[in-house]
Structure formats: structure tokens, C-alpha cells
Amino acid sequence: MNEVINNNRSIIVRTENLCKLFLNGKSEIKATDHVNLSITSGEFTAVVGPSGSGKTTLLNLIGGLATPSSGRVFVKGKDINQLKEKELVKFRLHNIGFVFQFLNLIPVLTVEENISFIMELQGTNKEQRNRRTAELLELIGMKDRARSRPYALSGGQKQRVAVARALASKPLFILADEPTANLDTEAAETLLNTMLLLNEKEKVTFLFSTHDPRVMNKARRLITLEDGRITKDETYVR
């Protein structure tokens, strides 16, 4: 069951004392150290911090891509670490969208096929897939590139398609790991505007990691990590 914090918003992600330790020779490195946070629906949240502060690890743990050394991750009230591998893959497919820094798209598929691919995995019928793909292409402003293959797109266009693909499965939230890291200013701006538009219009929840000040300035909540610990958690009205 979703945890309701007010009439409109519910907690969709909650972590409890989340720790992830890595061994470096004989010493242990705490990538995340007793992280407790909650993400509510409709948030546009950035996890910030210097390199090695544990941003990617935190996102991987929330997305069920890594197993915590201790602590728990609840998505929609469900402890995802209790799920078996097959259940977890299915859970991710239906509830979490991912945008990575690179190699987001399947190179052999066209833009529309890439977007449609997730829905195909979900078992959505062709008609619905086509309708949803068309909607998403419209939303990201790339209707004219529907038949293009990833190699023919710019870095920014690829990331927008990745966002559309992540959105195709109608997930609870989207995790984006440094989505603008490889983009020039203009492409980063366009991507951010697309993400904000989706957040405002479609109420899509975004949780992304970044150390790009342009992105930080657009985020409505900034969670700062240092040495795996949350040192600041600030909310802004923009």
C-alpha cells in the first residue's frame, strides 16, 4: 500500500538506513551510509554531491540494480530486496524508468522501436504501443525522427528518446543517472525542459543524480550526499 503524506501526494520510494559497502583491498568503503529518505509522487529531485559521494550507488539501490549491505528500500510500500531476481526484473519493468549516461538505446532499433520495446516486454498490444509511442514522440518533440536509428541522433536527442522510453511503461518514477553529463549546454537545456514539462504536465516523478549546476538550479528538491551520507535535503519553490 502507498504511504500517503497528504491528499494529493504519496510516498513512492522510502529508504531505511540504507548502507552499501565496497571492499577495497582490506579496507571497506561506505558508498552509502545509513541513508534515510522518502520520495513522493510528482517530485523533481536531484541527488548532488562530488564524484564518489555515492550518488550512482544510491540510485542503483533504489532501482534494485544493486543489493544493499544493510537497510531496506521500499517502492510503493514493497521491500524490493525481498523480491526474487525474476520478480525484481518484472517489478522494474512496470514501476521504474531508467535513463543512463550513455548507451541508453538499443542501437539496432529505430527511435519508435526503442520506445515501443519496453511496452513489448510488458506485453502491451500493438495498437496501444503505437498510440503511446506517438504520444511520447509528440511530448519530446521528436515525431519527425521516429524512424531514425540512434546513430543518426545527437547526444541530446538520444537522451530525450531515453526519457520517452523510460516513460513508455508508465512507471511510478524515473531514475536518471547524470542524464546531462555528456551534453552541451543547449542539449542539456532542452533535455531538462522536456523533463520539467513531463513532470508538470504528466506528473512524472524524477529522481536524478547530477553535479551540473544548470540541472541543480531547475530541481525542486536537492539531496546532497557526501561520503555516502545525506548532508543536506532542501526543497525549493521554482
Binding site: K86, V89, K90, R92, L121, S169
Partner: peptide, 10 residues
């Protein structure tokens, strides 16, 4: 890794 993480069953 990308394919598995976006939900493609192994």
C-alpha cells in the same frame, strides 16, 4: 546490463 536494468528478463 542496460537491457536487464530497463526490464528485459535475463
Amino acid at each position: 546490463s542496460v537491457l536487464v536494468s530497463i526490464g528485459m528478463p535475463r
